[in-house]
């Protein structure tokens, strides 16, 4: 991975649960805790979308969460990358035929990185974050 000049700070992520089963949430938190410890690279979860570069979305987007997801997406400053964690956000997964879904996620907001799995392993999530970082660098390099 080439660190471009424009990329001069750590990656901060905001996590949004759009009605998931919680499995992906646990794995995201497990990713952040000491065994994997991405915080040594400055990667951490933040409490406000306005501080984030990366949006981690889990869950199949239930109807009530759609406007909230849009609002959160709009609040993240550009350049931003969206990462969809888990099978149910990618395609509906085990909930594909539910009547209460507005998803999958890429029907609601544009997604840059997909991490498949139900739930994905922490290693998979870290790999996805690396990909997201590469894309973010590219986007930041393109900015005037």
């Amino acid at each position: 991975m080439n660190i471009t000049k424009s990329f001069n700070r750590s990656l901060w992520a905001f996590h949004f649960n759009s009605g998931s089963c919680n499995g992906c949430e646990i794995e995201i938190v497990a990713t952040l805790t000491p065994r994997y410890d991405p915080e040594r690279f400055g990667i951490k979860l933040v409490g406000s979308p306005k501080h984030a570069d990366l949006l981690l979305v889990t869950g199949p987007v239930v109807k009530k969460m759609r406007p909230r997801l849009l609002r959160v997406y709009e609040q993240i400053p550009d350049p931003k990358v969206v990462m969809c964690v888990g099978a149910c956000g990618i395609s509906g997964g085990p909930f594909y035929d539910s009547y209460n879904l507005d998803g999958p996620i890429d029907d609601v907001i544009p997604v840059d990185v997909y991490v498949p799995g139900c739930p994905p392993r922490p290693e998979g999530i870290i790999f996805g974050v690396v990909r997201a970082l590469q894309k973010l660098e590219r986007l930041q390099g393109e900015l005037p």
């Binding site: 009605g19 869950g59 239930v62 009530k64 909930f95 209460n100």
Partner: peptide, 9 residues
Amino acid sequence: QAHRAIEWM
């Protein structure tokens, strides 16, 4: 808020 209609499915 996270109703996924699991019983229905």
